[in-house]
């Protein structure tokens, strides 16, 4: 057992864990934060995506012990207590889901993606790697979100929701 001090959604939690426990299992099984989903458990589907210090990661391939002291944000932290995060509401408005199993991961991933884009990080479809002020086209959204699979195939709605949210944020 190792003592792991996790910071999740702004709260401290001290857990005694075997070192092989993933961050995903620690969140779900020890902290009861079941909003983060277990899909493939091998880093292929993105359902387990959470933010670590604002960066999106696959929590299934992360050992909890490696993330001690990092600021972990899950869908519960994003949603808050009110009517939901504006991006969640955009997903609902745009039919960005059917069964909803991938949605927590999609939303965490999209917030991480928008931060990366805002910081000027290029993607595999970026034409000019050193260009400033990169436009967030649908092609860019799709490429940057390719690590989140949706078996219902709600991709068009997901892209619409992210585009709508990003545009509203840019207005603010």
């Amino acid at each position: 057992m190792v003592e792991v001090r996790l910071r999740v959604n702004g709260a401290e939690a001290s857990l005694d864990l075997p070192p092989q426990v993933s961050l995903l299992d620690a969140l779900r099984e020890r902290l009861g934060l079941t909003g983060t989903k277990k899909g493939c458990d091998q880093g292929a589907c993105g359902a387990c995506t959470v933010l670590a210090d604002g960066e999106r990661i696959n929590s299934c391939l992360a050992l909890a012990v490696q993330y001690a002291g990092r600021e972990i944000t899950t869908i519960e932290g994003i949603a808050g207590d009110g009517p939901g995060h504006p991006l969640q509401r955009a997903f609902v408005r745009n039919d960005g889901l059917q069964c909803g199993y991938c949605t927590s991961g999609q939303i965490c991933s999209a917030l991480g993606m928008l931060a990366e884009h805002g910081a000027g990080m290029p993607s595999a479809v970026t034409e000019h790697l050193c260009a400033d002020g990169l436009e967030l086209s649908d092609e860019e959204i799709r490429e940057r979100m390719s690590g989140n699979l949706c078996r219902c195939g709600a991709y068009n709605g997901i892209v619409d929701a992210i585009r709508e949210f990003a545009a509203a944020e840019a207005e603010r």
Binding site: G46, T49, R56, N58, G112, E116, G147
Partner: peptide
């Protein structure tokens, strides 16, 4: 590097 894996995996 951008052609490989997903953004989440590249962050890790």
């Amino acid at each position: 590097v951008l052609a490989g894996a997903s953004a989440q995996l590249r962050n890790m």
